[in-house]
């Protein structure tokens, strides 16, 4: 993996995490949005997800999918941080343990 592909991967990851936060903002029952605001957040989420998708599409042909796919584990950590900062979601010890185990498994898949 060269620096170029690593940067592409980072761009893909951060765009999709931002997209997810926007989607949750739009759909949340706790923070109900006016229909116009909801449409705005869904639109913003779509832009993030689409950008992430095209970066991803650029990376895909260069690696076997079973190798490249789990590297997306980085976005798991990014998303946990983003959700607790921007959505005030609670990180319980059990949740952190689960995230840790999933990330560990994902790294194990990627390095082999």
């Amino acid at each position: 993996m060269t620096l170029f592909f690593f940067l592409l991967l980072m761009a893909s990851t951060s765009s999709s995490v931002a997209g997810q936060v926007c989607f949750k903002r739009a759909m949340s029952d706790v923070m109900p949005e006016k229909p116009r605001d909801r449409a705005f957040w869904i639109g913003a989420g779509l832009i993030g997800a689409t950008a992430g998708f095209f970066f991803w599409l650029a990376i895909l042909p260069h690696f076997p999918l079973s190798y490249i796919y789990p590297i997306e584990a980085i976005d798991r950590i990014m998303l946990a941080v983003a959700a607790s900062v921007f959505l005030q979601e609670r990180l319980t010890p059990r949740l952190l343990l689960g995230i840790g185990v999933i990330t560990g498994g994902t790294v194990l898949v990627s390095v082999t």
Binding site: P70, G98, I99, G100, V101, I102, T103, G104, G105, T106, V107, L108, V109, S110, T112
Partner: peptide, 8 residues
């Protein structure tokens, strides 16, 4: 690794 992810 896949198994560990499942456990998580």
């Amino acid at each position: 690794g896949v198994f560990v992810v499942t456990v998580g």
